[in-house]
């Protein structure tokens, strides 16, 4: 064996802090770079930001045109919230944001990037938390833009025929807040599904299944009252309850506002927990 003098290896300058600790600010910064450096991401977010306010405007315009033909009970049942946020069109938003969330993890598994990531940062749980932080930031911002934009445009489209509700009214604020929070909820659930499933196609299918097939399937079991809390805890139903501003007669079981808010809070928390555990315990 040869004798070698060990010259000290020069180290690149580090900005600050202990050399070994994964710092939250750095990890979030890294995930921020990764999130925006995929071309499809800003395009998708831009499309959603324009599409939904347009849907809202169109729905408002529809009410404006139909208003003269409405009977008094129909006019009484008018719902400014569900006009601004037409439920069925929002399945696409949920699947779209859920898919973006899923791709932040499935994209790491598709090649083998996850191995590069975890070789650079062995603290896996902190990587997942950083991903969750970036998704929460971006999606909450998008949610706010879409929620406020949709509400205001739908109000504007109602013209002078239909009674208006200012966005500052408590019911309107609740609808806007719930809509803002729906987007990060969906993205984080998508991330968790991908952390468990890994494969891109499987993760996107799971997003569709959880957000669309599951609530539809559960509702079609109608009559089984013990299932109501489960049905009402589905994001689409909880959000639908919180965006409702009408005073029409409600058919069937609906959650209380408290129950709906609880569901909206529980989904993202559970999703992050699942993602952290799934990525920490498994071989990659």
């Amino acid at each position: 064996m040869s004798l070698v003098t060990h010259t000290p290896v020069p180290r690149p300058p580090r900005r600050a802090g202990s050399p070994d600790r994964a710092r939250r600010r750095d990890l979030v910064g890294a995930e921020w770079i990764k999130f925006w450096s995929l071309r499809s991401t800003p395009v998708t977010l831009g499309v959603l930001a324009v599409l939904y306010p347009y849907f809202a405007w169109r729905a408002g315009r529809g009410e404006y045109r139909s208003w003269p033909n409405y009977t008094p009970p129909m006019r009484d049942a008018f719902d400014a919230g569900h006009t601004a946020f037409p439920g069925p069109t929002w399945f696409l938003m949920m699947v779209g944001t859920g898919t973006i969330g899923a791709l932040t993890v499935a994209g790491e598994h598709a090649g083998g990037l996850i191995r590069t990531t975890f070789t650079a940062v062995p603290a896996r749980g902190r990587v997942v938390l950083a991903k969750a932080a970036v998704l929460t930031k971006v999606m909450t911002a998008l949610g706010l833009v879409v929620a406020v934009g949709s509400y205001q445009l739908s109000q504007a489209a109602l013209g002078d025929r239909v009674p208006h509700h200012a966005i500052t009214e408590p019911d309107a604020l609740r609808a806007v807040a719930a809509t803002t929070l729906l987007l990060p909820l969906c993205a984080l659930v998508g991330m968790a599904l991908a952390a468990v499933i890994r494969a891109t196609a499987g993760s996107v299918f799971a997003v569709c299944a959880v957000f669309v097939l599951l609530p539809a399937g559960l509702r079609s079991t109608g009559g089984q009252e013990w299932l109501d809390p489960v049905v009402n805890a589905q994001p689409w139903y909880a959000w639908g309850r919180l965006t409702g501003m009408g005073n029409g007669h409600i058919v069937g079981s609906v959650p209380s506002f408290t129950a709906a808010w609880t569901a909206m809070a529980a989904w993202p928390v559970a999703a992050v927990a699942v993602a952290v555990v799934a990525l920490r315990v498994r071989d990659v």
């Binding site: 750095d26 770079i33 650079a120």
Partner: peptide
Amino acid sequence: RAHLAALARANGLA
């Protein structure tokens, strides 16, 4: 560059 920039950032490298 983005690939390397993210890794450098995560590790607090200049």
